[in-house]
């Protein structure tokens, strides 16, 4: 008597959200099974992998990342190099320098980078801010306007600025918007609800429920993602059926395990190997819990994670 297990296919499904245009456009979500359970039913759109580029450039990045971008003299070349990474599905531009508590780079600088990148590549674009809600709203506004027709994802509107950001990105300029909450299913749902009350169709929202690095309170991330997917698929909760995108690379490359130099802790070995494994392990764990896209930094991580996703489909 062979094994006889029940299929875990659900009657509900995650919404499909498309970003980008033309051949390179990517679709997020659409599945009606638990994360990566392609054996229960085909997963319409495999999880996607994005490459993170910040306006700091690559000076402070690990050797491997720096080496990959060596020789790039402008943002257009950097974008093309990033787009050429094996397994890259989309590009993410993040404007850390714009933070008023940091360098406070003007919005015009951000726009210049955006325009250069947009002219150089036809990869789908995701525009991320600097974590300051007010400044982000300004950047997002201008970016959404400048990139009209490119169907980019504005990543992300938060509780403090969703009214302006979501309305301008989606309603005024026809882009997609991210809804950013911090590792809490109730906050995530509430933000989706209030964004849709501004008049934004739920089909234009991608969730960013936050993340942590493996080992750093990651259990909250696991349970938040698990519960969001359980509600979306198991209880057909339309307000949680948005696909999820997670910025893994930004988190994992900030912890001690990925930054401490080999000179400081010789036993730990080369920084690159540690950083890549931390990024890959965290990404796989986030995908196993339900993220529909991960944002990574290192070319080896991008290639590895996208290969493993393909193997699992």
């Amino acid at each position: 008597m062979p094994f006889n297990g029940k299929s875990g296919k659900f009657n509900a499904a995650i919404r499909t959200v498309e970003i980008g245009t033309g051949d390179k456009a990517v679709k997020l979500g659409g599945e009606c099974v638990a994360p990566l359970y392609s054996f229960d039913a085909p997963i319409e759109n495999a999880p996607k992998v994005g490459v993170l580029i910040t306006d700091h450039g690559f000076e402070n990045e690990s050797e491997g990342i720096k080496a990959y971008y060596e020789g790039c003299s402008n943002w257009g070349e950097i974008a093309q190099r990033a787009a050429a990474m094996e397994g890259a599905d989309f590009l993410v531009l993040k404007f850390d320098k714009a933070d008023p508590n940091g360098e406070n780079a003007p919005v015009e600088d951000c726009l210049a980078i955006i325009n250069e990148v947009a002219a150089a590549t036809d990869m789908p674009l995701v525009i991320a801010g600097c974590k300051n809600a007010e400044k982000d709203a300004e950047i997002f506004n201008k970016a959404a306007e400048a990139l009209q027709g490119k169907n980019v994802l504005i990543f992300s509107a938060k509780e403090e600025n969703y009214k302006g950001v979501a309305a301008s990105a989606v309603l005024a300029y026809g882009q997609k918007v991210g809804a950013e909450s911090s590792v809490d299913i109730n906050l995530a749902k509430q933000l989706n609800v209030v964004i849709s009350q501004v008049g934004v169709d739920m089909g234009n929202i991608v969730m960013n429920v936050g993340t942590a690095t493996a080992g750093y309170g990651f259990e909250y991330v696991v349970s938040t993602l698990d519960r969001v997917k359980a509600a979306a698929l198991g209880q057909d909760d339309a307000q949680l059926q948005m696909p999820i995108m997670t910025n893994v690379g930004d988190e994992t490359w900030a912890v001690k395990e990925s930054t401490a130099s080999e000179a400081d802790i010789p036993a730990w070995g080369p920084v690159d190997a540690r950083g890549v494994n931390m990024e890959v392990a965290t990404a796989m764990a986030v995908l196993a819990s339900g993220s529909n896209a991960v944002i990574l930094k290192h070319p080896t991580s991008v290639a590895t994670v996208s290969k493993l996703i393909k193997e699992l489909m």
């Binding site: 493996a214 080992g215 750093y216 990651f218």
Partner: peptide
């Protein structure tokens, strides 16, 4: 199982298997 594997995996395991 070098530190490159251990740091992420043991950290992940410690989190996932913690008693809520």
């Amino acid at each position: 199982m070098t530190y490159a594997e251990a740091l992420p995996l043991f950290g992940l395991r410690q989190n996932v298997f913690t008693d809520p």
